[in-house]
Design a protein around this nucleic acid. Structure first.
Lengths: 336, 336
DNA sequence: CGCCGGGTCGCAAACGTTTCCACGAACCGT
DNA sequence: ACGGTTCGTGGAAACGTTTGCGACCCGGCG
């Protein structure tokens, strides 16, 4: 910047002021400065500016696993709206583990992010939230919650699970299995609650032997599916409570030579790009991933502007994608 | 930091030195300082440090589309090894368009990234590379290249395409269609070249009517597939030259009620998590995505250490995943 | 003619670090 | 006892900005 000021024959402060339009500067000098800027290939140093201004125009995004298409889409949306609002995002992936969560957070607060979007981990989530709050970093939780006292935007997990399982029950299935997620996550528990509600409503008993822990990822889900299928009175339908576990379940089916929905019906939480290309096409409930990301940024920006706002708790409706893996034929009526 | 120094009864410089272990400080004062640090909840300001040190320990990662599983995996790997080496990564997604590429780059250099990993866009890639070089930012290209004069790590595109198409030809197909990628990308051209090589080697003529532009994404690929299937003498086999286009092709097949491989054989560039769950399972060639990401970081760090190194051009071998969409039966012999 | 006000601008102090330089004390060998 | 070396430490400049304060010049008004 000194180069520019010398080149334009003005002071450093004047250069700064034309850059930020922070005080009137006559057209003549303005153009002179602008010319000097482009002549010298000058590029403002964001670090110095952030240091002085005590704001970085950076948002932290700490998620569980970027390889999960759900998070991928959220990230994409967050990045897009943040960019539109003049913010850059720094991403950290904690691999759904508490050990990597805190170090990641520390990096983010060390870099002085102006705000934080966090998918709190199962074991460390509460600590992570407190840490951010303690450092006075505006925070919004996504996908799951570790604290009711602070903003979040999540999907209607219980309701989505309930509808899927209710549909399976309506089709006559009496033994409906469930692949459950990572214990300790609010989303896991809500989906289990939805499953049980549907069972209750259908007059079906809850049998713990019909649920198996798939940890929200493919390999555990594959093993869990095998286990479920090996019991004395195995399920005739399976509810996979996220996208990655659906993958594992289908691998297990294929390994056992089971046909869907003939041998076993399948309904899954989370839609994804390929879900309608399988034979049969997958019946799923889709989360509004992009919307979740967009709202998370919006909420965060609002909170940054008004830290004293009461906590906003957003629970977005999910959308049922009724296809054939549940056992219905292509033209079947919509699920009530 | 001043707080800490006051609390510990030492000077600011001493605090800095215990923090960085940059000069010997006796155990007694050291512990006193450490105590003061944790007592005050002090967290070093990365910005000030970066400003002073003229390095940010930040890497820029500018990719085409984070929703593409290929890039997702690369991002994941890059993030992981960068973190292990003490670097943070800032991600920008240019949506495969030149208009968003330069602004994204400007943000990155404004934030003074220490190095850059770039998937150059089709139209703006060369300019982007020059821009980085002009600002003396160490750079490595991934996935495609806009400049031979600077490091890159890409896959063996031509070879992968050649092997897939050769296999289709060996199976007796005489009219093999191809969905081509975004024009202007080196990967697109290399895959086309591989396709033509295989045709030549099999003594098959190259018929332009058998190639259609799928732009590396689902919708265009779907339309392109329909177009290919509507010609007078349609292909009996299709080569989809990336993952997203495979999706589009399969949608088109399903819309036309075509069975794979009975009505049309399919072989695809890029493997992905669900590829072996389709009926039939997809025959693909897999890029070493994680390896690409890892090597990109490694090369970048090396170049940051030694800017004058001659350019390293890495072309990683691809791996054939021989399954059944090509028309082979499950136990078939490997592709030569 | 003096004063006042507005329009232009520059100076210099911060922001929180790192790092060079130098200073005092203690200790060593002669 | 004394110069020299080492050890432990502090002071202060610098990194590239932003911004409060005040200086200067000019025209117009009383």
């Amino acid at each position: 910047m000194r180069d520019v000021s010398l080149l334009a024959g003005v002071s450093i402060s004047t250069v700064s002021h034309v850059l930020n339009e922070t005080r009137p500067v006559p057209e003549a000098t303005r153009t002179r400065v602008l010319a000097a800027i482009s002549a010298s290939g000058y590029m403002p140093n964001t670090l110095a500016r952030s240091l002085k201004r005590a704001e970085t125009r950076t948002l932290g995004l700490a998620i569980g696993d970027i390889a999960n298409p759900y998070f991928t889409e959220v990230v994409d949306a967050v990045e897009e709206v943040a960019r539109a609002r003049g913010y850059t995002v720094i991403l950290t992936d904690n691999g759904e583990s508490a050990e990597r969560e805190m170090p990641g957070l520390r990096v983010l607060v060390g870099r002085r992010v102006d705000g934080l979007i966090l998918a709190p981990s199962a074991e460390g989530g509460a600590e992570a939230v407190n840490y951010a709050l303690h450092h006075k970093i505006p925070l919004v939780q996504i996908d799951r919650t570790a604290s009711e006292g602070c903003d979040y935007v999540v999907a209607a997990n219980a309701e989505g699970a309930r509808r899927l399982v209710a549909h399976l029950a309506a089709l006559g299935h009496r033994r409906i299995g469930m692949l459950t997620g990572l214990p300790g996550l609010s989303s896991t528990h809500e989906r289990i609650a939805g499953y049980r509600t549907a069972l209750d409503e259908a007059g079906l008993p809850f049998d713990p032997a019909l649920t198996a822990e798939g940890q929200f990822s493919p390999e555990p889900a594959r093993r869990a599916t095998h286990a479920l299928l090996a019991i004395a009175d195995p399920p005739s339908a399976l509810f996979a409570s996220n996208n990655l576990m659906t993958l594992g379940a289908m691998r297990a089916f294929s390994e056992r030579g089971l046909a869907v929905p003939g041998d076993i019906a399948l309904a899954a939480f989370d839609d994804f790009a390929w879900a309608d290309l399988f034979q049969p096409r997958l019946t799923t409930v889709a989360q509004p991933c992009r919307r979740i990301g967009e709202l998370a940024v919006t909420l965060l920006l609002e909170r940054m502007a008004a830290p004293e706002l009461p906590p906003r708790r957003l629970r977005l409706p999910v959308e049922l994608r009724h296809r054939e893996s549940c056992g219905c034929t292509p033209g079947a009526a919509a699920i009530p």
